[in-house]
């Protein structure tokens, strides 16, 4: 018997806005299964988002849901979690939302290590606004604002998260649905700030413009299937061999002091003194 999603969805909000061929729905379902597996009380789950296609997800979910301004989801989530650490706070963001306009909040959220989970639905493009280049658009790819090919290296969400101090960092793709669920679950269970880079596909605004790689939406999933390299294998490969590959796996998993707990310790220390 399949998983029953109904009790987690606001079905009156259907149909959703995502195009056919979009894989954001796969992330949504993986997130629901992960939350179910974590046995969280629905009343204590808060899903926060910014602006963009990915950010429409919370509206479809039957939790406390907060659809905020572009790039700022993590800052809102920080307020929610610090105000009530009992809540399970999950942030979903697109690539532009998370590391372009929200880049500063991304860095500082990783650094602060508040117990929250960020899922980046990384489809390499601004889909909602019509396919403009994003910070994760691949070099040479066509978008509506890089019509002659995107210049420069895309931002690697995983490297950025590790560099900024996130304590759980993983990446997989929307082709690898079970792994995606498993990584999100691990992120939810992790004490501290966790980042899951979920490689997603936007055929409408990205795939169609880059026919050299994708003839159809299915090709985008096939591309993920054929081009992933596990992190352990990647360590044995040189940069030439890794070109065009998607490295997947758990990149970092460490326990470090969590902000809310440290704050509470400070309160206890100060109040004992006075």
């Amino acid at each position: 018997m399949g998983f029953n999603y109904h009790s987690y969805l606001r079905e009156k909000m259907m149909p959703h806005i995502w195009c056919s061929g979009c894989t954001h729905g796969i992330v949504t379902k993986a997130l629901i299964r992960a939350i179910d597996k974590a046995k969280f009380d629905k009343n204590k789950v808060v899903v926060v988002s910014g602006i963009g296609c990915a950010s429409r997800m919370p509206g479809y979910l039957d939790f406390n849901t907060l659809h905020t301004t572009h790039g700022r989801a993590l800052a809102f989530a920080t307020g929610v979690k610090l105000a009530n650490p009992e809540l399970h706070v999950i942030v979903v963001a697109g690539d532009g939302d998370a590391v372009a306009i929200g880049g500063n909040h991304f860095i500082h959220s990783c650094n602060r290590n508040i117990d929250m989970t960020l899922v980046v639905l990384n489809n390499n493009i601004y889909g909602m606004t019509g396919g403009q280049r994003s910070p994760t658009t691949l070099e040479g790819d066509i978008s509506s604002t890089s019509v002659y090919g995107s210049i420069g290296n895309p931002i690697d969400v995983v490297n950025l998260a590790i560099g900024a101090g996130a304590t759980f960092v993983a990446r997989t793709t929307t082709y690898h649905v079970h792994q995606l669920e498993s990584y999100i679950y691990s992120g939810l269970m992790h004490k501290g700030f966790s980042v899951i880079d979920a490689v997603s596909a936007c055929y409408t605004a990205y795939g169609r413009r880059n026919k050299q790689r994708y003839k159809s939406a299915i090709d985008m999933l096939n591309y993920m299937k054929n081009n992933v390299v596990n992190i352990s294998a990647a360590r044995e490969m040189n940069s030439e061999e890794l070109k065009g590959k998607i490295i997947i796996g758990i990149f970092k998993d460490s326990l470090e002091p969590e902000y809310c707990e440290e704050y509470q310790k400070m309160i206890n220390r100060v109040k004992n003194k006075t």
Partner: peptide, 27 residues
């Protein structure tokens, strides 16, 4: 901290405004 309240210095002004809205929604 003396009244079990939260003080946080955010990364910028935008984030500070966002955080107080989040906190208010959390009660």
């Amino acid at each position: 901290p003396l009244v079990d309240g939260v003080f946080i210095q955010m990364e910028d002004e935008i984030a500070a405004m966002a955080a107080i809205i989040g906190a208010s929604l959390a009660g």
